[in-house]
Design a protein around this nucleic acid. Structure first.
Lengths: 333, 333
DNA sequence: TTGTAGGCGTTATCAC
DNA sequence: GTGATAACGCCTACAA
């Protein structure tokens, strides 16, 4: 009673394998009673069709991949939930890959994935301004790809993002309205589309307020907490901005640590606003003003685009844009 | 140049499929030059062995599953990192499943997984005191299972946990030493092994300090934030404990929200300690005293146990226990 | 409605 | 060192 396959089950039931097979496929004609009998016996014997045999035969895996830069982040986990909800409703499985913001890992995931392991990929990019040629492999293999949030401009596939430019403009304006005249823009990746958009929003908001743009206020950070801590310490003690606009959550966190350690009062000495989906932003000291993206909806839309492509057999090219929302809290008051 | 299989590649190279196949398998004898030639041409033509065919043939998927209750939680994402590191080093892929603390989802994941999709499972349980019979299916199919952190006592498989009883004892003592005489224990799932252990540590620490145990101070919470908020509001306004011991991070968070809204000062009116791997515990208002588990190591150990079982073909039964660490912060000062 | 048979792409066994 | 061939477990024409 160890491993049982369709043949044994068929023999056990005095039926042919085709009939048994039919009982498990939704479509084919089969006598309702026979089907019930088969399924019942299958449950008893603990039989399940072998996934790899089916997938080989059908040339589809009913599985999609989600590639994200990180997990311990409410934005991505919410987006994943959105994707999974849709995927599950379509009978698809979901594979999650975490790049930890390493370009090389992203490349190798895509590589591994292009052997047919999945039918499609939803991804938020990690890959800075690197070569994106490896993604063309997917196109050649007709494997649909949908980007969300962090996209590559030079790759023509379906994308779901938020109104980053506008949000960024408004966030900067929010700081200016709160009295900041020297707003630093903290960014990790200026070359990623999302970084560019957010930077532009910042620049234009300054201009709109008649504040001259200063290059030294664009602070290039990294994915390493220690490095960021040092960079920000230096900025806060030498350049002394009175406003910080973090284009990424972790830079706001790093800023908080620096201010805490250096005794720089938020919001008195410096006001802080950040793109963030942090659930406990209200509990920080002080509570953090955030630009919050509709993470779950982003996931839902991305999944819908992917399945549209999967079902039609055509690659999708839509670009869906959703709106983020500013949640003012004490860090900018 | 669309889809290419081993046959076409073989034809293209004037070789047999067996030889080509050998080029991709590590072991078999094959002329080094031939192999190089094959691999080079494969790269050119963008050929990769079909995963499903290989898996069907080899009867193994080189994939393992990780089942966790939630993602947006530093504990689990760290543990996942630990698992993935080991898995990757063994050439295995990793599938992540999130139950959202729903028992039914856990059951259905296990069900789906037992069709051979993965070679083994690492899981942190969601399933309260329910029936765990569905797990026996795995044993019948010789699919190894390893638990980490949240385990089922009635299932005899390998487990990796932390010294929950001891940590809980110490955490309670920490509150008592800080002057608390009326410590409430916040718990979600008393019937899960981990809940029991932590509760027992609390009870024994009270006894050791000569403080009588009061049943009303054991606060049963849920996974729903709103409900918890209400429960805790009531507790804090009626029972008025002077210490809160959250056996789970989200209960500390909920307590913070309640205290913030009700104007109850932490730590003056009530001190708070919690099991938590929250990275930004130091940034909360006030900074939160935590009992921090070695999440990543838990994952590493769990993966090692799983691979040991996978490699030996024998189920593993070890129970590894790692140590957590109390990080005192302002919430208990 | 059910059965027969061939093949999905790979790899292992056995020859040469 | 390389080639022919038979499975792996399932699904779908096609035939009955």
């Amino acid at each position: 009673m160890d491993k049982i396959d369709i043949k044994e089950l068929a023999r056990d039931l005095n039926l042919s394998t085709s009939t048994v097979s039919r009982a498990f496929r939704g479509n084919s004609d089969i006598n309702a009673q026979t089907k019930e009998r088969i399924l019942a016996r299958a449950r008893e014997l603990n039989y399940q069709p072998n996934l790899y045999a089916s997938s080989l035969r059908e040339k589809k895996s009913n599985t999609i991949a989600i590639i994200v830069p990180e997990l311990a982040n409410n934005f991505f986990s919410q987006a994943i939930k959105g994707i999974e909800k849709i995927a599950r409703s379509k009978g698809y499985h979901t594979l999650i890959y975490v790049t930890d913001d390493e370009y090389q890992l992203e490349v190798s995931f895509i590589d591994d994935l292009s052997n047919g392991r999945v039918d499609g990929i939803i991804m938020s990019a990690s890959g800075e301004s690197k070569d994106h040629n490896y993604l063309n492999k997917l196109k050649k293999k007709h494997m649909p790809l949908v980007f969300f949030d962090r996209v590559y401009d030079d790759i023509d596939v379906a994308k779901v993002t938020t109104n980053d430019y506008e949000s960024s403009f408004n966030a900067t304006k929010h700081l200016i309205d709160a009295g900041c005249g020297k707003v630093a823009f903290l960014v990790i990746n200026k070359s990623l589309s999302i970084g560019k958009m957010r930077l532009q929003g910042y620049v234009d908001a300054l201009a709109a307020a008649g504040i001259p743009y200063k290059k030294e206020l664009i602070i290039d950070c990294s994915n390493d907490h220690k490095k960021n801590y040092n960079i920000l310490s230096k900025v806060l003690t030498t350049i002394k901005p009175d406003g910080l606009f973090a284009s990424v959550e972790r830079l706001a966190i790093a800023s908080y640590y620096v201010c805490q350690d250096l005794g720089i009062n938020i919001p008195k000495k410096v006001k802080v606003i950040s793109f963030s989906s942090l659930e406990i932003a209200p509990l920080l000291n002080p509570s953090l003003t955030t630009i919050t993206q509709p993470a779950r909806d982003l996931g839902v839309h991305a999944a819908q685009l992917l399945f549209k492509s999967l079902e039609s057999g055509e690659p999708a090219h839509e670009h869906v844009v959703l709106k983020s929302k500013i949640m003012p809290r004490r860090s900018t008051m």
